[in-house]
Simulated assay, not measured.
Amino acid sequence: MENTILSRAPSRDFTASPPSSRRGFLGLSLGGVATLALAGCASYQGYSFTEAIRRLLTIASQDAFEQLLAPGGFYDDQLARLSVDEVLGNRGGVLARILGSTIVRERMMREFNRIAAEGAYRAAPVVADTIRIVGFENAVALVSGEPTAATGYLRTNMGSRLIDVMLPEVSDALRVIDDPVLGPALSELSGVNLSGVADSLTRRTEDAIWSAIGREEAAIRADPYATNDPVLIGVFGARNAVR
């Protein structure tokens, strides 16, 4: 089958901002996948299923990271919100009693979400690289699978790579927070295994990332025409029509 250059909707130009910005960075790292010449094996009416899955994951990942890394992204997204209790477990209650302030808890929650965004920023190019190199031998099964089948397949193939990439960033961020209000809280944390807090926050961030990608994948499958991508429309539009 002749190789086809991946084309995306004009409204999805993530390279317009400078490469030094986060949006520009995501456009270059995830957009690198979008410029590959992809050859497929299984196909439908000339459309490669392998290419369709790669395009599906590229666009879903790009949209998910853009939303999560936007100002307030993790904090405002109900599927990604990271709360103090979820990250600290029982320690959250201890800190609440020590500090005795809802305002401080809210600031702590926002700080955790900021740290989560830093970890996600580091994770974005790793996801992009994996989409590029993972072989989709079971492309037919993924095309006809559940709404988040491709996301689940990608997560399984990545294993602990996101955790490995994000954990150093999260650990460093927890240690360098310089806040006159949160400082005392973090001092308390340092006495109760700060590395464990970093690990919990990292895993919560990982779950949030995969939830966001899966949600975007499901949305694309439901309405491939919104992408303006001919391959996604050809594969998933046809599949939706015969349901």
Rank of each mutant, 00 (worst) to 15 (best):
T15K: 10
A120F: 01
L36Y: 07
Q67F: 00
A34F: 04
V126R: 06
D76C: 00
R81W: 09
T130A: 13
D63V: 04
R55S: 08
F65T: 04
A39Q: 15
Q45I: 02
A117Q: 12
A60H: 08
L6F: 07
A34W: 02
S11T: 10
R110V: 01
S7A: 11
A52F: 06
E66K: 01
R54W: 07
P19K: 04
I133D: 15
P10K: 09
A123F: 03
L68F: 02
G24V: 04
S11L: 08
D76H: 09
G119E: 09
G31K: 04
L28D: 15
E118K: 06
A64C: 08
L68H: 00
L6C: 11
Q78K: 07
G46D: 11
A96V: 05
F136S: 00
L6R: 13
P10F: 09
F112T: 03
A37F: 12
V94P: 07
N90P: 09
S7Y: 09
T50L: 06
A52Q: 08
S83A: 13
A123R: 01
R12E: 15
M109I: 02
L82H: 06
S61I: 06
R132V: 06
A124V: 01
S29N: 10
L79T: 04
V127E: 02
G92Y: 01
S48K: 08
N90V: 12
G89N: 05
L99S: 13
D85C: 09
R81E: 08
T102R: 11
R81P: 03
S29C: 11
D85R: 14
L36W: 08
S61E: 13
L56E: 07
R114H: 07
G40V: 08
R54F: 02
G135H: 13
A116C: 03
N113I: 01
A52Y: 05
A60L: 03
F74S: 04
L28N: 14
V33R: 10
C41L: 14
A116L: 07
L82Y: 06
G40P: 02
L56I: 03
L26A: 07
F49G: 01
G46S: 08
L57E: 08
L28A: 15
G135S: 13
T50K: 11
A123K: 04
Y47W: 13
L68G: 02
S21P: 05
S29I: 02
R132A: 15
E66Y: 01
A16V: 12
A52G: 14
Q78P: 08
L88K: 03
A64F: 02
L26I: 11
V94H: 07
A64H: 06
L26P: 01
L6V: 12
A120D: 03
D13F: 12
P19M: 09
Q78H: 09
I103L: 14
D76R: 13
M108I: 07
R12H: 08
V134I: 10
V94L: 14
F136E: 07
I103E: 15
L57G: 02
L26Q: 07
